[in-house]
């Protein structure tokens, strides 16, 4: 994990996974683009070496994330912690989703990454789509995993902000009786252990929800539908067939607004598809981006 000081005055934490690619100037997409001969030579395609940037869900991210650790076999991964998650004051000047897109770009500039693959899950999926609409040329491929950001009256996004944490488990997973779902519920109700740690972990969770709420309440639609046409990256839309938070029907709504997309609907998958079908997702994203 590294901590960046941004020109905005904010700081940002970024988790990194994998080291299969050299970092720094070598991965600057700008260089690759300028070198047209190289770029067009499919046998020596620099895209293969581009890093993958991942925007996490409202649940946050840490170095143990199983999905990102597995995906790191194929990519050098940068997973910035969303503003607000560590400190709510970071949100003070991030009034709109555009402000947040600029903030993410500040982070990527500070990391010196000019071109990359982008993926995001749920709340992070919305910001991955927003980023790609704001900076279409920087995003080589886009993978959206059950993103929020569009609204359809026929299948409203679940109001997670009015769902008690202990009830959330039954909506997050495709199979509410699965071990994953059970583990989530027991985690949510677990109060054993160090009191300070519990308090801080609850506050972390709450800060994440407050942040998500700022850009998702009361309706998770901040006008992404007006901007999606700007995305030029080929986009993979991934959904769990049984997603009870953001219905898989939204894949079609995204597809209608995007120039170049394909859908992967995973049978039996829920909203936490990154945990439920890790292998399948890693394979699909790797194939899409390479």
């Amino acid at each position: 994990m590294e901590e960046l000081n941004l020109p905005s005055g904010r700081s940002a934490k970024v988790f990194t996974f994998g080291d299969n690619t050299a970092v720094g100037d070598n991965i600057k997409g700008d260089n690759a683009r300028q070198d047209n001969d190289n770029y067009n030579d499919s046998d020596n395609c620099n895209d293969n070496n581009l890093p993958l940037v991942f925007f996490h869900s409202a649940g946050g991210v840490d170095e143990n994330d199983p999905f990102l650790n597995q995906l790191a076999a194929s990519f050098k991964i940068y997973a910035p912690v969303a503003p607000g998650f560590s400190d709510l004051e970071e949100l003070d000047d991030l009034v709109s989703v555009s402000d947040v897109a600029l903030h993410y770009d500040d982070i990527l500039e500070a990391l010196n990454i000019a071109e990359f693959h982008l993926a995001g899950h749920s709340f992070g999926g919305m910001f991955a789509a927003e980023y790609a609409a704001h900076y279409p040329k920087k995003v080589k491929t886009l993978s959206l995993i059950a993103p929020v950001g569009l609204w359809n009256d026929d299948y409203p996004v679940l109001d997670i902000f009015a769902t008690p944490p202990l009830e959330l488990g039954q909506y997050l997973f495709g199979d509410p009786d699965s071990e994953l779902a059970q583990a989530f519920s027991s985690l949510a109700s677990d109060i054993s252990g160090n009191e300070e740690e519990i308090v801080e972990s609850i506050i972390q969770t709450v800060q994440g929800l407050v942040t998500a709420g700022k850009y998702m309440m009361p309706i998770p639609d901040r006008g992404l539908n007006r901007r999606l046409y700007r995305v030029i990256a080929p986009t993979l839309l991934i959904w769990g067939e049984r997603d009870q938070i953001v219905s898989a029907n939204y894949a079609k709504d995204f597809a209608k607004l995007l120039r170049d997309s394909k859908e992967l609907i995973v049978k039996g998958g829920g909203h936490m598809i990154t945990l439920e079908f890790t292998d399948k997702l890693v394979e699909a994203i790797t194939k899409h981006a390479k």
Binding site: L166, A188, S189, V199, I202, I203, V206
Partner: peptide, 18 residues
């Protein structure tokens, strides 16, 4: 919250009240 949580964690038996 920080002020309130400790007692709530102890009393409520779940993180719900946090």
């Amino acid at each position: 919250m920080r002020k309130g949580i400790k007692s709530q964690v102890a009393q409520a038996g779940s993180a719900l009240s946090s």
